[in-house]
Nucleic acid binder design. Structure first.
Length: 595
RNA sequence: GGCCGAGUGGCGCAACUGGUUAGCGUACAAGACUGUCGAUCUUGAGGUUGCGGGUUCGAGCCCCGUCUCGGUCGCCA
């Protein structure tokens, strides 16, 4: 080894020993006759002292620059009490230099690597290797490792096998767009990179593997977001002879271990459960942030005959009127503030946001007030649980717009009023998602999750209703599926799978997939299910999101070593890039002029 | 594809309703200094304000176009 110790481990007890450290120059403080260099590695910082006891070493040291890589031999000195630096782990000691060697010089780096560095994202991505030297990035990568390691430990203890599934697979046109890889051996044929190992993990169950998991890379060629990358990592698992409770128990144990090992936080051991219908009713969305209340209240029935046309017309025409209450905010937000809230929700199709304040004396204030009888307003306030000093906010539109908008408004309010404690991790299982959703575009039912999702046992009788009608009982069918939500973020999605080919065939029929088509699209899979399929269930938590949440980031790029930007480019390597004509010729692909 | 925000020395930012030579911090270079620890002090170098056009006596700022980055909606079974 070039070094005998790391830059983070020397303590007072090491005083007197001679050690060799190696690392990067974080900082040089030259006082003429005495000079200090902070030497940095992954483990920490150690102060190196140069002085006139060795003038030739000091002279050489004065030519060293930031980010050079040094090997330093020296003697550990306990610092006198008045020179201890309590901010450094190694602040009780310093290294009295004997000699050093420059292992590597460095150009002037594009941005600072210290803890105060605040470079923009673009420059950080371009020079990710510099960015990674920052203590925060080192911490992020370490937390990620620790969390994944904890998951592997738990899964091993439960007798799960980690099994790799192929990266080069077959394209399945439904769902997200696939990344395609042209075949050289078969011109005109393509592999697809997996959106998830879904089909393979189910086949592993047919294959008797019983309990499988994988820290799996997944690929989706869709537009990106702060929490969406074209390639991302899922903790994917599948279990035979399992019911939802079995999955919940294992994931809960994994989350507890991952948060403990990752960031030292003890999260609740049992997570709350909430049916999808309740989540939509009370929070307007399927991923509620339960760190604060502020439930939505529907008032459609109270306003059907009111004098406020905006509400009454929507109520009469099958729409929905719903609201929420901002407690004690009456004098905190002006008319202008409240009217301005609309800008936060108009992206969801919200045409307007109505608000009514209840002043401290109990009188109502706001644009719609004059259209209502006081008794009507009293009834609305009572329904919503609003009291003097509160602000009531309302949306009237079709149900999906109302729910989406108010859910966004609720989250916005949680942020404005700091209702959501950042140190709290509130998990919830959202269960019983609808099995089908009516697609207006295609005029038929589509799977909410995927076509292999098991129907809720109580709803099986509804499966044979008319599948060509939007009002069919099929729309009310619940599935045996579940999402794990943490602080308003969807962390995982899973379900019990269909193992009965009769049900599976009926689902295909409803989805408009003919048996020939099913054969063509997933023939091998449907075939496999015919050879003795155990009942099985699974789930796949997103590792990037989980780690980002541990560390308080909205952006998963912070916890991925080499992420891509919003246009799916790697700014460091320059991918994607053009290729040689020869490579294209091998694949029989005609070159397209690069624009 | 739509909407919103941002592009100013290497990096991070400022510049009022359009008005002198575009500032500040940091990094960088040189010098000073024997105890600093985000060292300090002195001096210095470093800019076609993303790009193109327009309005104006005058544009970093206003207008049009365009490019780039980010956020978001659509999209993501």
């Amino acid at each position: 080894m070039i070094r005998t110790k790391t830059c983070g481990e020397l303590r007072k007890a090491d005083a007197g020993s001679e050690v060799v450290l190696a690392g990067w120059v974080q900082n040089r403080r030259d006082h003429g006759g005495v000079m200090f260099i902070d030497l940095r590695d992954r483990y920490g910082l150690t102060q190196i002292k140069f002085d006139l006891d060795k003038p030739e070493v000091l002279e050489l040291g004065q030519h060293v620059r930031n980010e050079w890589v040094l090997k330093v031999t020296g003697k550990v000195l306990a610092r006198p009490d008045d020179m201890i630096n309590p901010k450094m782990d190694t602040g009780e000691i310093e290294l009295d230099i004997v000699s050093f060697e420059v292992l590597s010089e460095s150009e002037v780096i594009p941005f600072d690597t210290d803890e105060y560095s605040n470079a923009g994202e673009e420059i950080r991505m371009r020079y990710r290797y510099v960015d990674m030297r920052r203590p925060q990035m080192q911490k992020n990568l370490r937390v990620r490792h620790k969390a994944i390691n904890a998951i592997r430990r738990v899964m091993d203890s439960k007798d799960f096998l980690e099994i790799e599934t192929p990266i080069l697979g077959k394209s399945t046109p439904e769902g997200a767009r696939d990344y395609l890889v042209p075949s050289r051996v078969h011109h005109g044929m393509y592999y697809a990179l997996p959106q998830s190992p879904q089909i393979f993990k189910q086949i592993l169950m047919v294959g008797g593997c019983d309990r499988y998991y994988q820290i799996a890379r997944c690929f989706r060629d869709e537009d990106l977001r702060a929490d969406r990358q074209p390639e991302f990592t899922q903790f994917d698992l599948e279990m035979s002879f399992a019911e939802p409770d079995d999955i919940f128990e294992i994931i809960e144990e994994c989350m507890v271990a991952a948060f403990k090992d990752g960031i030292g936080v003890e999260v609740e051991a049992k997570f709350e459960r909430m049916p999808y219908s309740e989540a939509i009713r009370d929070y307007g969305c399927d991923k509620p942030d339960l760190r604060f209340g502020m439930k939505l209240s529907e008032i459609t029935d109270l306003v059907t005959d009111c004098g406020f046309g905006v509400f009454a017309n929507v109520a009469k025409s099958g729409g929905m009127v719903k609201g929420l209450v901002a407690k004690g905010c009456q004098d905190k937000y002006s008319r202008k503030d409240l009217d301005g809230l609309h800008s936060h929700i108009k992206a969801y199709g919200a045409k307007g946001l109505a608000w009514i304040k209840i002043l401290e004396d109990g009188t109502y204030n706001g644009a719609p007030v004059k259209f209502f009888e006081t008794s009507e307003l009293d009834a609305i306030a009572e329904r919503m649980g609003a009291e003097n000093g509160d602000v009531m906010m309302f949306m009237a539109d079709k149900a999906s717009v109302v729910n989406n908008s108010l859910a966004a408004l609720r989250n916005k309010w949680g942020e404005l009023e700091k209702l959501a404690d950042k140190s709290v991790f509130k998990f919830v299982w959202i269960t019983e998602f609808p099995l089908f959703e009516w697609s207006e575009d295609n005029n038929r039912f589509e799977s909410s999750h995927h076509p292999f999702t098991m129907i809720h046992p109580e709803d099986e009788d509804k499966l044979y209703d008319d599948f060509n009608s939007k009002d069919s009982a099929l729309g009310d069918i619940r599935s045996t599926s579940y999402d794990l939500v943490l602080n308003g973020v969807e962390l995982a999605s899973g379900s019990v799978r269909i193992h009965d080919s009769k049900i599976q065939n009926r689902i295909f029929e409803i989805l408009g997939i003919s048996s020939e088509e099913a054969e063509e699209r997933f023939g091998f899979f449907v075939e496999a299910l015919k050879y003795g399929t155990p009942p099985h269930a699974g789930i796949a938590p997103g590792v990037d999101r989980m780690v980002a949440m541990m560390l308080g980031y909205d952006n998963i790029r912070e916890v991925i070593a080499f992420p891509k930007n919003q246009k799916a480019m790697d700014l460091m390597t320059g991918a994607p890039a053009g290729v040689d004509k020869k490579q294209l010729d091998d694949l029989a692909i005609k070159n397209v002029e690069i624009q």
